[in-house]
């Protein structure tokens, strides 16, 4: 009993420490990769090839003045970034990085992730409202409207995978892909999932809640210092979660030849990181009504048709 408890605590510390380090260096790689895609060098000054840049950024955020606007609602203003980061980090607890490396195994892992991710959006809404100025509240309201557009087809795109594996348990979903990865059976769902994931991450081309050309910085305009860092960390932690989910649901999780499972998992995860950064360097932002139209008039019917076809094929085969 005690031994198990100690093991769980160690796993938690490892997962969260590594995740936060990965988050810090994701920002570095994002700036580096986008820099090279735009024929720039990216950060170069701090350490060799700017390798210490994330640490310098973190220190800067620590020592910066923490400003609370006069018109803000103080408690909610403090509460929102914490809620956002907590909702992002607790999701890591159920991600199986290999067959036996996970903090806890939940038999409804998929639902757990969907549910807490949706609570995280409330934090953006609260942050926008509590700042007490107009750009943040517009950003907050946009994020609330966005959640309705993408969350539905995010859930529906996963449905096909769940039907094939017959379980909500993330480990069983991976085990069901021993022979063929789900991306082969569910290519349409995979594409829809990726698009929905970009919406969930508030990343380009769907970064409408923080569109800097229209809303300054959207919901976190008034945040500074470490409260801003919370939002930043949460955004990148969500990027990890979304990548992990894509790997687990569609790309066979830790399955792969020769190399140990966890290495395969991390390789596939990094491929998604690269993809998300690549997308940011490639596409312009969608207009708000365009994003809504894509969600309700294209993605939703496509996912519904996908579920129907999956069901029919499963009945016939």
């Amino acid at each position: 009993m005690t031994q198990e408890l100690v093991l769980v605590v160690i796993k938690m510390i490892v997962v969260f420490a590594v995740a936060l380090l990965v988050v810090a260096y994701l920002t570095y790689f994002e700036r580096k990769i986008i820099g090279h895609m735009q024929l720039r060098l990216g950060p170069m000054r701090v350490g060799p090839h700017g390798l210490l840049q994330p640490i310098a950024d973190g220190l800067k955020l620590f020592v910066k003045e923490d400003i609370v606007p006069h018109d803000s609602d103080r408690w909610t203003f403090y509460f929102a970034p914490i809620l956002n980061l907590v909702c992002a980090l607790v999701l890591l607890a159920v991600i199986p990085f290999s067959y036996n490396f996970m903090v806890t195994r939940l038999n409804i892992g998929v639902l757990y992730i969907l549910s807490l991710a949706s609570v995280g959006t409330i934090a953006l809404l609260l942050a926008g409202w509590s700042s007490g100025s107009k750009y943040p509240i517009l950003g907050g309201l946009r994020s609330a409207a966005q959640i309705f557009s993408y969350e539905i087809f995010l859930g529906f795109s996963i449905m096909g995978v769940l039907m094939i594996s017959g379980s909500l348990d993330l480990v069983k979903i991976v085990e069901a892909q021993s022979k063929v990865w789900n991306i082969v059976y569910q290519p349409v769902a995979f594409v829809v999932y990726i698009i929905a994931a970009l919406g969930e991450l508030n990343r380009t081309p769907f970064d409408l809640p923080e569109a800097e050309t229209e809303l300054v910085a959207g919901f976190h305009t008034e945040y500074s210092g470490f409260k801003f860092a919370y939002f930043f960390l949460a955004e990148y932690a969500n990027m990890i979660i979304v990548s992990c989910m894509a790997v687990i649901l569609f790309l066979g999780g830790w399955k792969g030849p020769v190399l140990p499972g966890i290495v395969w998992f991390l390789i596939k995860m990094c491929a998604f990181f690269y993809f998300f950064i690549w997308v940011r360097a490639t596409f312009p932002r969608y207009r708000y009504d365009q994003f809504m139209r894509i969600g309700w008039k294209i993605m939703l019917p496509v996912t519904l048709a996908n579920i129907l076809v999956t069901g029919i094929v499963m009945m016939l085969v």
Binding site: L114, S115, S118, V119, I122, L126, W129, L141, A144, A145
Partner: peptide, 14 residues
């Protein structure tokens, strides 16, 4: 959590 905390609460706050 999905239905009430996620969806309906967002509506309320909205």
């Amino acid at each position: 959590i999905i239905v009430y905390a996620g969806a309906i609460m967002v509506f309320f706050l909205f």
